[in-house]
């Protein structure tokens, strides 16, 4: 949407905040992937650091605990030589006392240059980006069921490394689309990068209304949905979803939508299997697939660092460039 675009890009079209994939032009997504490619070599250095963000302060502002995601952002920031401060605020304590806005003002007063935000409410990163001072960048590390754009970009990076191009690919996203911020960002990224087809597969209880308007085809059957697919993206099934009566049991879910070697055989022979992690073995994916030759799940984790470095460097650099102009 235009709103997203206005907020995320500077006047001269550089990436200022990274809140959502939606609304970003293809060229920006490609520049993230290209820049990330450049950062992959840093891991080979004996000093695994580049001095790009030396003297900058990055605050990891996590209102929803996630050690994994926070750690990858922290590693990315440190490899860019930035100073990193971690703030874990459980929403319960936040609601007791100061408002989100107050928390933000306080941290901003400590000369913060970037916020990496995770929050359980959709739109939280967007809200924060609207509030921060002009020199501060905001990166969305996951907001509610809305977006998780860096995860989507590392998935695109992984796909590009395997196939080289996006145009001929058929991609299937399987599982709990209803609650998945990752899936929404992936869909926007895949359609912006113009893959051949994006499919979503799941029971009707987990496929949100009107998702077809995001440019995807909806399937409720794995066999039909996986046919001729190049990339299979499995989504994590949150255990707590069972209490909401979205599925009757993990067992029955696995029977219908679990990715087994037999089901994977419906896809193209060279198809890769992805998962944003952490995986539930035996719930959404069989161990034989998760650990199998077609799985690129660990590559995704590795690529996550370079992609996050790229997003941090690009957003921080945009203000600098703006000042020059």
């Amino acid at each position: 949407m235009n709103h997203h675009r206005r907020l995320q890009l500077t006047k001269d079209g550089r990436l200022r905040h990274f809140i959502a994939i939606e609304g970003l032009p293809r060229a920006i997504l490609m520049s993230i992937l290209d820049t990330a490619e450049g950062f992959t070599s840093v891991a080979n250095q004996s000093v695994k650091k580049v001095p790009l963000l030396r003297g900058k302060t990055i605050v990891n502002l996590f209102f929803e605990s996630s050690t994994r995601t926070r750690t990858t952002f922290e590693v990315a920031a440190k490899r860019l030589s930035a100073d990193v401060i971690n703030f874990n605020i459980s929403t319960s304590s936040a609601s007791k006392g100061e408002s989100l806005l107050d928390t933000l003002r306080n941290l901003e007063a400590m000369q913060t240059d970037m916020f990496v935000v995770r929050h359980d409410a959709s739109g939280a990163a967007h809200f924060i980006a609207q509030q921060v001072a002009p020199h501060v960048s905001v990166i969305n590390a996951g907001d509610g069921c809305h977006a998780h754009p860096t995860q989507a970009m590392l998935d695109m990076f992984t796909i590009r490394r395997h196939f080289g191009e996006f145009a001929p690919l058929n991609v299937a996203i399987v599982g709990d689309l209803l609650h998945s911020r990752v899936a929404r960002s992936q869909i926007h990224a895949l359609t912006t990068l113009q893959v051949n087809e994006v499919r979503v597969i799941g029971p009707k209880t987990l496929i949100p209304k009107g998702i077809d308007q995001m440019g995807v085809h909806v399937y409720h059957d794995m066999r039909a949905g996986l046919r001729d697919v190049d990339v299979v993206i499995m989504l994590r099934l949150q255990r707590e979803r069972m209490h909401g009566a979205f599925i009757p049991s993990e067992h029955e879910y696995f029977q219908s939508y679990g990715l087994t070697p037999e089901r994977l055989a419906y896809a193209k022979p060279h198809a890769i299997v992805m998962h944003p992690g952490p995986i539930n073995r035996g719930v959404e994916i069989d161990s034989a697939v998760a650990d199998g030759a077609q799985s690129v799940i660990l590559e995704q984790v590795t690529n996550g660092i370079a992609v996050r470095m790229a997003v941090m460097a690009l957003t921080m650099g945009s203000y600098a460039a703006q000042g020059e102009a």
Binding site: G38, S41, P51, L52, L53, A313, G317, A320, G323
Partner: peptide
């Protein structure tokens, strides 16, 4: 060597996307 990330003018011009990483 791709010195893009070691330049001293980052705060003035930002980064330029570059596909070829350093290869040693």
């Amino acid at each position: 060597l791709n010195i893009n990330f070691y330049r001293d003018d980052f705060t003035r011009i930002g980064v330029h996307p570059m596909v070829t990483p350093t290869q040693l």
